[in-house]
Each structure stands twice: as structure tokens, then as C-alpha cells.
Design a protein around this nucleic acid. Structure first.
Lengths: 137, 137
DNA sequence: ATCCTACGATGGACAGAGTACAAGTCAAGA
DNA sequence: TCTTGACTTGTACTCTGTCCATCGTAGGAT
């Protein structure tokens, strides 16, 4: 975690208390917070932090590749740490819970050249949908 | 196409001119319009159609499984006909163009039980990202 | 230790996408 | 043709996210 902060400082980040708090909030596995949720949690530690700063910081973390944006529901984007460790998502259609998953196989390799329409394909994002144990009948 | 209208009537849909126009606009391959684009196109044929009706109708088509919602860019959702013919998407990171693709292999089968966390997984959505020929350097 | 200054934070206004709702309209069955 | 409940309309509203002018401060320079 402080790894992250060190890495960021190494990239010339000015280390402000706001950025530190945002980075701390985004710590852990299976964390997929919306910007507003990040803001709410950050506010507990730093009451005056502004929404704009949270958005800015999240945007920077995404640009740096430390955090991944996920939009599983067409509503608010969610922010996923572990951007450096590729994984996909499993979403509950009822409650919206998101789990990180690592499927076997390489979906990128599964796309035949004939289906690439001349694109240079560089990335693939997979979202599984289903019903989680808690929501099952 | 009129197949679609027949199918809808069969499901108890009241067939209004507004719904007909929305269904007509959403006809074709590689069609991925936003709600506002659908509204703009629909307006050419039926000038007084309201945004609310377009949203309602699109929502109903999605519920019926005739149309799929795609949110590839975190901005407006896009609506994709051929909901009954499963396929995935290839998106250009620069211009946003979307193509339908049908990869070989079954990504659903690639998710081991151990990675399902007790979910009943029923669907998978794959988005490939890359650069299209027109945007290549 | 203090000063400087460019980078970052703030908050309020704004914009885009989508939803809610009360009132009016009309498709389709009797 | 009549009736009725489903559909449409327009407006107001919410939610998410961006913009921007102004203020504050981290961290290098002295």
C-alpha cells in the first residue's frame, strides 16, 4: 500500500493529504467503489476533501494504470485497485456485488484474425453475470 | 424486422407508431446507437416523439431480450439489436467505433468453478479494445 | 528555517444522461 | 362506436461527472 504511495512519488506525484487518503480508501481486494463512495469514505478521514479532488485523483490513478475503471451497470463508474494485476469481473444481476475473477484461457487469443476487422487488438475486458449465493432463492 | 414487430405483438405489446419507429431505427448490423441518436433518427419519421418514449421503449426492448444494452465508454449507453444472436464487441479506443464479433471458444466455460464464488453464472459480456484501421498511424 | 512558486485543492456552476410523474391520448377488444 | 387501460408527452428532477477561477501548500531553492 505504501508501495503505491512510493511508486506515485517516484513518478513525480506531489504527495498531498487528499491524495494519500484517496489511495488509502482504495486499498484491498474486491474493492469496487464509485467515486461518490470513495468521497464518502475519504470524508471520514479528511472532512473537507472535495468531490472534484476525488475525481481528479481517481482520474490520475487511472492514467497511471494503478487503478482500473469498471462500468458494469451503466450507472456510476467503479474504481478497482490492482490495476497492475489483470483480472475480470463477476457481477450479481440482483444486488450488484462484484467479485474479481481470473478465468483460465486467454480470451484475446480466442478472437480469430478474420473477426478483427483490421483492428490492432490490445486489450479485453470480460464481465460475467449471474446470481450470487446471497441473492439465490 | 417486421418479424420483430410480430414477435412483440405476440407478447401483448400494444403496437403504437412510436414503438414501430423505434424498432425500425434499430434495424441492421453493427448498429449501436445511443438513446439520443435513436431519438434523433426517430424524430425524422415521427417529429413529435418524445425522449421519454424512446427511453421507455428501449427499456422494454431490453427487458424482452430483443435489444442489448452496451456501455463501452462510460458515457451514454448504446443499444444493440440482434439481442437474440449472442455476440461480443470490438471497440476502437480512439474513435469509439464498435463492431460486432463472434470469437471462437466459450468464455463462460473458461471460468472454473473455483472462481465462481458460488454464483450461478448465466451470461458473459466480452469487450475487445484496440485501434481500428482508420485510426492507425 | 524560511521563502517561492508551480502544482494541487476547493466549491460552485454547469452539462449530459436518464428517471419520475401527472395529465392527456389512443390501440384494440367488446 | 365505445370504453378502458396501456401508452405518450413534457417538465421537473436526480445523478454522475466536468470546468474553472481562486486559494492553498508541498517540496525544492536559498
Amino acid at each position: 500500500m505504501s508501495d503505491l504511495l512510493e511508486r506515485l512519488r517516484g513518478r513525480g506525484w506531489r504527495l498531498t493529504s487528499q491524495r494519500r487518503v484517496v489511495a488509502e480508501v482504495l486499498n484491498g481486494d474486491h474493492v469496487h467503489l464509485t467515486a461518490d463512495e470513495v468521497h464518502a469514505l475519504a470524508t471520514r478521514r479528511l472532512p473537507e476533501i472535495s468531490r472534484a479532488t476525488v475525481y481528479n485523483t481517481l482520474g490520475e490513478l487511472v492514467t497511471l494504470g494503478e487503478v482500473t475503471e469498471v462500468s458494469t451497470d451503466g450507472r456510476a463508474k467503479r474504481y478497482d485497485p490492482n490495476g497492475h494485476r489483470p483480472h475480470h469481473h463477476l457481477v450479481c444481476s440482483r444486488c450488484g456485488t462484484i467479485r474479481d475473477v481470473r478465468p483460465g484461457g486467454d480470451p484475446l487469443a480466442d478472437l480469430p484474425t478474420a473477426e478483427r476487422f483490421g483492428f490492432t487488438v490490445s486489450d479485453v475486458e470480460v464481465t460475467y453475470r449471474g446470481v450470487c449465493p446471497a441473492c439465490a432463492d
